[in-house]
């Protein structure tokens, strides 16, 4: 927290820096964004006129594995932030790399599933289920991808010594984003894959 406050120039009323507070506000907005996408999926869940239907194609096991990978990436994110705050550059880089790698594995597995579903005949245009499923999960994947790029930039800046303990808030906020994307996935995983 001390480093976070130092990164900002004004003492704020709340003690939380503008950057972090603004980002929290943005995440509140994102909640509504995903909330609308998820609601639409739920409304359309039973309305597909033609198959394949959700129960026929989803493999809970595969998705559980990819979800677990994404969950562990959040742990790596926490450790990366800790390393940055403790000025442990090498560890910070390794943990950030782990975040990106696990994000990549998640995306790869999900992409594999997409190919499988398309094989089964579920496409963006095949039914209300297909449209709402792909737009919901696709939007989430774009968020994951963006997070990976962000981590990459942070890693490069840590590597070139432009982010150290005084600038740790930059990593902290990126972490907020990453955890948020994770949590959203947990909700999607529960509502889309677990509930039949």
């Amino acid at each position: 927290m001390a480093q976070a406050a130092a990164a900002d120039h004004h003492a704020t009323n709340t003690g939380i820096s503008n950057f972090k507070l603004g980002f929290w506000t943005f995440l509140a907005s994102e909640c509504l964004f995903f909330g609308t996408l998820i609601s639409t999926y739920m409304v359309y869940k039973g309305t597909a006129l033609v198959g394949p239907y959700p129960a026929e194609i989803f493999s809970v096991i595969t998705t559980t594995v990819s979800t677990t990978v994404l969950l562990f990436s959040s742990l790596a994110m926490v450790l990366a932030l800790d390393a940055v705050q403790k000025a442990n550059k090498k560890a910070a880089l390794w943990w950030l790399f782990a975040v990106i790698a696990m994000g990549g594995i998640f995306l790869g597995m999900e992409f594999q599933s997409y190919l499988k579903y398309i094989d089964y005949g579920l496409t963006l245009t095949s039914s209300t289920f297909g449209s709402s499923y792909y737009v919901l999960t696709g939007t989430h994947k774009v968020h994951v991808l963006f997070g990976m790029i962000w981590m990459g930039i942070l890693g490069w800046r840590i590597y070139t010594n432009r982010i150290g303990p005084p600038q740790a808030e930059q990593v902290e906020v990126a972490g907020l984003y990453w955890h948020f994307v994770d949590i959203i996935w947990i909700v999607i995983f529960t509502l889309v894959y677990l509930i039949p």
Binding site: L49, L124, S127, T128, G130, S131
Partner: peptide, 9 residues
Amino acid sequence: TVFFDPGMG
């Protein structure tokens, strides 16, 4: 996509 296409549900 078919979000608002009544013919597709």
